[in-house]
Write a protein that binds this DNA or RNA. Sequence first.
DNA 1: AGACCACTTGCAAATGATTCGCAGATCTAC
DNA 2: GTAGATCTGCGAATCATTTGCAAGTGGTCT
Lengths: 139, 139
Amino acid sequence: MAQPHELRERGLRLTPQRELVLAAVRELDHATPEEIAEKVRQTHPGINLSTVYRNLETLENVGLVQHNHLGHGGASYHASEEVAHLHLVCGTCGSVGDAPIEAALNFVNSLSEEYGFRTDVSHFAVYGTCAVCSQAELS
Amino acid sequence: MAQPHELRERGLRLTPQRELVLAAVRELDHATPEEIAEKVRQTHPGINLSTVYRNLETLENVGLVQHNHLGHGGASYHASEEVAHLHLVCGTCGSVGDAPIEAALNFVNSLSEEYGFRTDVSHFAVYGTCAVCSQAELS
DNA sequence: AGACCACTTGCAAATGATTCGCAGATCTAC
DNA sequence: GTAGATCTGCGAATCATTTGCAAGTGGTCT
């Protein structure tokens, strides 16, 4: 037999639902479980929300996807291949901006040196006010 | 009449529940609404959870308390007087460590200069692995 | 191809956290 | 003290996520 599938390689069964969830995560980027479910349903309406939740958990366990916390509420998911970056969440307008991990390099290093704390900067949002809203406040 | 009360000064009514919630927030630090309610109930059992939620919201509106996001789930509250600091949340053991805001100063400044983003570092947790758990992983 | 069994799915119900609606209680100003 | 707006308690509604269970399916072995 030819190439082993990436899911099978990790000891997972190859089900259509699972592949669809993974594809949706890769395509959407920063998507909530709800959004992922909706995306999947565009092509395969029968898929249950709990299946999406369960597969996200499963895929996270084998390291294909990861979640992080952006807004005030729940988690959002992205594929592991994606280049990690910072998420700059604006508390005023809710926008999510990106910044390269390198911007936090010194910060991460100093936490490591001074507190022995290994920071995963991309897991939680960096919260604040974006340029646009900062500007607007001045008026 | 003597001194105006801090709550009254801000246009709020002075109710026992409200004072108790504020006192509990000040005393507990980093407390969830649930914990605050429990604290308040130790002395005044009749107080309703929704009253706690409503008062936290109200107190936040007038700037006496603030919330932030530490664990994966809900919010935790602290009094505004409290000195702001970073929260180092360990994803492995769940501990929450503190670090002074100054540790993030360069980081905050560079985000400000490069992206115009005004960061509120204390609002969201800094996520990673604490020294103890990092050590444990090596074994 | 056929059978077996563990892994998955769908569905509905449970859960946990937070919010809402409303009637009655209570603050404050007068 | 009275009036009216603001709170509170309570129960129900909501939202996101999880769980139990019976039925379905994928992978393996023959």
